[in-house]
């Protein structure tokens, strides 16, 4: 069964909290690079954690279009649904 988008978003935000200070509020529109200061190296490490969490593979190529938390959640949802 495909995992619900909202569930993915919730779990993703939990992972993102590890990369930010506790007082930062993360919403779907939050920009990963400009607002959470997740650089390319951090993003790649985050992706590996996400891959394990959702038992999926996220091709690096697909990350080029990821700008916001919503973009990343949507990508995970898309890959998870396609399995």
């Amino acid at each position: 069964m495909a995992t619900d988008y909202n569930d993915i978003l919730l779990r993703l935000c939990f992972h993102l909290k590890q990369f930010t200070s506790p007082d930062v509020i993360i919403i779907p529109e939050t920009d990963l690079i400009n607002e959470l200061a997740i650089d390319s190296v951090k993003l790649l490490n985050l992706v590996m954690e996400i891959e394990d969490e959702f038992d999926i593979s996220v091709p690096l190529n697909a990350l080029a279009d990821v700008q916001t938390v919503h973009d990343l959640a949507n990508l995970i949802h898309h890959i998870k649904s396609a399995k």
Binding site: L44, V47, M48, E51, S57, V58, P59, L60, N61
Partner: peptide, 16 residues
């Protein structure tokens, strides 16, 4: 498609 595994981690490689 480019997929990375953790450095020198063969269990991680196999999982992928």
């Amino acid at each position: 498609e480019i997929i990375r595994f953790r450095h020198n981690d063969v269990a991680d490689m196999e999982k992928r």
